[in-house]
Simulated scan of single mutants.
Amino acid sequence: MYRFPLVVLCSSALLLSGCASQNPYDQQASGSNRTASYGGLGALAGAAAGALINHDNRGKGALIGAAVAGAAAAGYGYYADRQEQELRRSMEGTGVEVQRQGDVIQLIMPGNITFATDSAQIASSFYQPLNNLANSFRQYQQNSIEIVGHTDSTGSHSYNMGLSQRRAQSVADYLLAQGVDPERISIRGVGPDQPVASNATADGRAQNRRVEVTLRPLPGAQ
């Protein structure tokens, strides 16, 4: 009567510690904590299911159920950990910033490396980061790729909307030419409508002129 809860708790603890210790990217705190959480919750559910299925040996059933469900539940979190680590490595020194929030990975590409002023033609300094992105996107294929162009507030709103759209399209076209699946890519231009700094200063305008690439899990990948 009292052995089943003890086994469930023990197996869940083992799965939690296993996820944390076996993930080679556990230095990335946000991703690793999420992986461990997924694995732990999956382990609890799997342990209960396994114990119910294995009527003859509830303890053994709970351990098996915890192991199977915990590994499956940790899948996308571990996948995103690996992709984030690879992106951080490949973008080091390029000026591209990599951010992570839960399942979402975002790359922020500042205007000083992407496009010349008032141009949608890719700058020479932007080719290497884009090549690295294309390599990553071909290797990791379980997320969608949203490309958003931004401008500062100089000039008319309608002109900036068009410019930001053309810049996002230029990035998408380059990635497509490198073999990235077109079904995964979407683009938007938001002009000056989502500033991250004040347009009253040159430095603020430079921060606002940017391209953001956001990666989200495809349906069924989580």
Rank of each mutant, 00 (worst) to 15 (best):
Q169K: 07
N135W: 01
G93Y: 13
F126M: 15
A123D: 09
P182C: 12
Q99P: 01
S153G: 15
S164I: 01
R138Q: 13
V180D: 04
R210Q: 09
S156G: 15
S125T: 15
V171P: 02
S124I: 06
E97L: 09
A73W: 06
R82A: 13
G93I: 11
A177E: 08
E212S: 14
Q99T: 14
Q101A: 14
G65H: 03
I185N: 07
H150I: 00
A123R: 11
A67P: 00
S90Y: 01
I187P: 00
Q142N: 14
A116T: 08
F137K: 01
V190S: 10
R89V: 06
A67M: 13
N208F: 07
H150Y: 15
E146L: 15
A120C: 11
V196L: 15
D193F: 00
I113H: 04
A71L: 13
R188S: 12
Q128G: 00
S90A: 08
Q207D: 11
Q141G: 13
E146K: 15
R209G: 00
S156I: 05
Q83E: 12
A69T: 08
V196Q: 10
I187H: 03
R205T: 04
S119Q: 06
A71E: 06
Q141D: 13
A172S: 14
Q99A: 15
R184G: 05
S119M: 06
S136E: 15
I187A: 07
G93F: 11
L130N: 04
A206P: 00
D118Y: 10
I105V: 12
I147L: 10
L176Y: 04
A177R: 08
I108W: 02
T154W: 01
Q207H: 08
A116Y: 11
A200F: 08
G204R: 05
R205C: 03
Q99H: 13
M109T: 01
A67K: 07
V190N: 09
V68Y: 02
D81A: 12
Y140H: 11
Q207S: 13
Y174E: 04
Y78S: 13
A177K: 06
A134D: 01
V211Y: 09
G204E: 09
T94S: 14
Q207F: 04
T154V: 14
A123C: 02
A168S: 14
T154L: 09
R210H: 08
Y76W: 12
G77W: 05
V196P: 02
G77Q: 06
A116G: 14
S156L: 12
V190L: 15
S90D: 08
N208E: 08
E86C: 06
Q121K: 15
T114P: 00
R88H: 09
T117L: 11
A202G: 00
Y79E: 06
S186H: 08
N143C: 05
R100T: 08
G75K: 07
Q139E: 14
I145F: 04
P110D: 05
V196E: 11
D81G: 10
G155L: 09
N143P: 00
S170L: 03
Q169M: 04
Y174H: 03
R184I: 02
P192W: 02
E212A: 15
G149A: 13
R210P: 00
D152A: 10
N132R: 14
E183Y: 02
Q121E: 10
N199Q: 01
P110M: 02
G111F: 05
P110T: 05
G93L: 11
E146F: 11
A197P: 02
N112F: 12
S186L: 14
R88C: 10
Q101F: 07
